[in-house]
Design a protein around this nucleic acid. Structure first.
Lengths: 177, 177
DNA sequence: TGGGACATGTAATTTGTTACATGATTTT
DNA sequence: AAAATCATGTAACAAATTACATGTCCCA
């Protein structure tokens, strides 16, 4: 399960609570678990059971008590091993839009055009949102230049893909005239 | 559920059995359900229950009896409505590789290089396989020129994306020297 | 005679999302 | 006074993959 290692990775920087991890995932340009990923809570329990993290409970006044998780040496080596040895997979692109396009010949010209318009708008919006996220991403201290570069390239990845999508869309438009 | 409409789409061409649909999905460059997608069987039952398809059972000698599914007028209009009105979504790219890369700074130079190599190999292989699939794709008769064009563009989509991936990878390599 | 294609299906598992439950505190 | 944020968690649902179960036919 990838989220295990995404969590371990974040904990390799500094301790986090489940709640904080959720927010990091929601805001991240690199890590993709969505909106309100309550998956973190059971996964943290699991990581703890496996000895990859430790917990320290902070009795805070009033609020429910915080559980601050830290990575263990065992966790660090599990993370490193995962990064080094996991076969790097390509995501199989499962695009709903492509399935729509496959039978878009059922539609009259205007409806097909409208479908393409709406998709382009979606891509453009996502591109803008992503750029905005990247722009207001907090400067992370204590990173090696190499790590900074890697994160920059991860952020670039989405941009490159969305731009390729737009180029491809333009080619469809040309062909349909 | 997208697979409902992928099935309806195929049935809009001609009747199919569940077994045949499975094979089409497995071989298709456009439709993504994987290897041995037994999902089709329960979905076909569901479509039948909803009146979007009809079944004709062919008593074949020896083999278990074939169930040939055909689309109904109701099914056709459900398909058309879906294509026309569903908001075209972008797949949120959930790449395991990017998660690995996010913490690849834990690795020594050679291991990082190896990770990139293996990923590039994966992308290149997928590109070759996809091109091969497209090349040996059977010529579909009875299609309008527009439909043929759309399917051509769907096949192109994967190629465009994989090539963008390779370009992006090359940029990482440059930056890491 | 053994494996693969034909043909149907069920069950289990995995992964991720969404909704629900609880309740204090801070901000508008 | 209402809404958002803090903070934990459970439960339900959805989608897709994989394994299992059954049995025939055909070809090497």
């Amino acid at each position: 399960m990838v989220i295990r290692y995404a969590i371990l990775g974040l904990l390799s920087w500094k301790p986090f609570t489940g709640y904080e991890l959720k927010k990091v995932f929601a805001d991240s340009v690199a890590l993709y678990w969505s909106g309100n990923s309550n998956q973190v809570y059971p996964v943290l329990v699991q990581l703890h059971r496996d000895g990859l993290v430790t917990v320290r409970t902070e009795k805070s006044t009033g609020y429910p008590e915080k559980k601050v998780y830290s990575i263990t040496p065992l966790g660090m080596s599990a993370l490193t091993a995962w990064v080094a040895t996991t076969a790097p997979e390509l995501p199989q692109s499962r695009s709903i839009f492509l399935t729509q396009l496959a039978w878009a010949d059922l539609l009259p010209k205007e409806d097909l055009a409208s479908l393409l318009d709406r998709y382009e708008e979606e891509v453009t919006m996502r591109l803008a949102m992503h750029r905005e996220k990247v722009r207001r991403r907090p400067a992370a201290p204590d990173r090696t230049p190499r790590e900074t570069f890697l994160w920059e390239m991860i952020a670039q990845h989405e941009i490159v893909m969305l731009e390729a999508e737009l180029t491809w869309l333009a080619r469809i438009r040309e062909g349909l005239v």
